[in-house]
């Protein structure tokens, strides 16, 4: 799962750092991800994991790190 998340971040995150090698707790917004890029990340994650983020998941913290994204994806897959 983490590899897929990193691939999504590499393609859509517009990060100033290498998404393939950053720590899972690295702050993605502090690493260059804009609010608009986070929308693309969200849509790409939905495609990759066949999920749809609910409105209650639409918070900055859901997409602030790889670890947070993983937790969010798992929550939506279990929903």
């Amino acid at each position: 799962m983490d590899e897929t998340i990193r691939d999504v971040l590499t393609e859509h995150g517009r990060l100033a750092v290498d998404a393939g090698s950053i720590d899972e707790s690295t702050d993605l917004f502090a690493s260059g991800m804009t609010s608009h890029a986070s929308v693309n990340v969200m849509l790409a994650l939905e495609d990759a994991f066949d999920i749809e983020f609910s409105e209650k998941m639409l918070r900055k913290s859901t997409f602030e790190s790889i670890a947070a994204i993983r937790a969010g994806v798992l929550e939506m897959k279990d929903a």
Binding site: R14, T34, S35, H36, A37, V39, N40, L43
Partner: peptide, 23 residues
């Protein structure tokens, strides 16, 4: 807020109506 127009164009091309209808 400030948005790069090319980023939006890329999103529309990549995600199409899913992007449009979601936002």
């Amino acid at each position: 807020d400030l948005v790069v127009v090319a980023d939006v164009a890329r999103s529309v091309r990549r995600f199409g109506n899913r992007y449009i209808d979601r936002i």
